[in-house]
């Protein structure tokens, strides 16, 4: 891995760096993900993994039809996912649109993180001024985590300087809030691009790199997660700083979630097995985790009527 003496800002310097990163062989990465997906996690390991997965959830609602009532209900669930079982941990954060950040913060108090999607989510197609305003607005409303989207058009056109500039500016606008940079890997298409975008985001100041908005057909996939986990691992080796990873979209079952935990353990390492460094962006995943948890507790399968729908 190349050493970087000072921040790279120009398109030329960034291109030189990003294009010198090792390539990713898609078939090999996919085969590795498939091999890891055959790990069989049972009994106490599974129980432990389910609780960790719950603690890693960014419980999310990102709908045009979101209302304060809906957000409050979700926040209640985030705090106490299973009202019948106080041993169930809270999730990591709630994730909402900026205009709901204040309601979310009021609902969860200081107990949970409030993440707001900003920067003209999900397309990212707005002027930098509008994006920054979006960020400041959410932070002012109480969000302590900002999920921004990168300008995929600029990235795919090779305009790395512009993408970098926007992340740097958003990071500054975040103040103390943590910045999650959404790469929208489904639009980047190749794993080489995922690796480059991961490094671009990390070098520009991301605290987390996140796969997807959940608003395009292809969301998080295990091969994409592997490449991003390799990127944070290598970035740590180079800089001593651990960046978090957040797959989002399409992770619906406990089995999926546990697969990701296996990917973390065997790719980036155990250090990333914490909500500080790994999150699931999900809405329906939580209920499946709860049903699995109940099954392990009561010894038979649970049903959707035994978990809350909010």
């Amino acid at each position: 891995m190349q050493k970087v003496a000072e921040p790279l800002t120009t398109t030329g310097a960034l291109r030189e760096f990003l294009h010198a990163l090792p390539g990713v062989d898609e078939v090999g990465a996919t085969a590795r993900a498939a091999a890891l997906s055959t790990r069989s996690i049972k009994n106490e390991a599974k129980a432990w993994a389910i609780d960790l997965a719950i603690r890693m959830v960014d419980l999310t609602t990102l709908e045009g039809m979101d209302t304060p009532a809906k957000v409050r209900a979700m926040c209640a669930k985030a705090l106490r996912p299973d009202p019948t079982d106080p041993t169930v941990p809270s999730v990591a954060a709630v994730c909402v649109y900026g205009d709901m950040a204040a309601i979310a913060r009021a609902s969860v108090g200081a107990a949970l993180h409030v993440a707001a999607v900003a920067t003209a989510f999900p397309s990212g197609r707005a002027s930098l001024e509008v994006k920054l305003h979006d960020v400041r607005d959410a932070v002012a409303a109480g969000a302590d985590e900002i999920d921004m989207v990168i300008d995929r058009g600029a990235f795919l056109a090779g305009n790395y300087g512009l993408v970098n500039e926007q992340i740097v500016a958003v990071k500054a606008a975040c103040g103390t809030a943590h910045l999650k940079v959404i790469l929208e890997t489904g639009e980047l298409r190749t794993l080489d691009n995922v690796r480059r975008a991961s490094w671009l985001a990390m070098m520009a100041g991301a605290d987390f790199i996140k796969t997807s908005t959940g608003k395009v057909p292809v969301a998080a996939t295990p091969p994409v997660a592997i490449v991003m986990l390799q990127a944070v691992r290598d970035y740590y080796a180079l800089t001593g700083t651990r960046i978090g990873v957040k797959p989002a979209g399409g992770i619906r079952t406990s089995k999926d979630a546990i697969k990701y935990l296996v990917l973390i353990k065997e790719t980036a390492g155990e250090a990333w097995l914490t909500p500080d460094l790994f999150r699931f962006g999900a809405s329906t995943l939580l209920n499946d985790l709860l049903m699995q948890r109940q099954r392990m507790a009561i010894g038979h399968y649970s049903g959707p009527d035994y978990v809350t729908i909010d």
Binding site: R39, S40, I41, K42, N43, E44, A45, K46, W48, A49, L52, L261, K265, E270, L273
Partner: peptide, 9 residues
């Protein structure tokens, strides 16, 4: 605690 895989025989 670390993520130890339980035996899966």
């Amino acid at each position: 605690m670390t993520f130890e895989y339980a035996p899966a025989l």
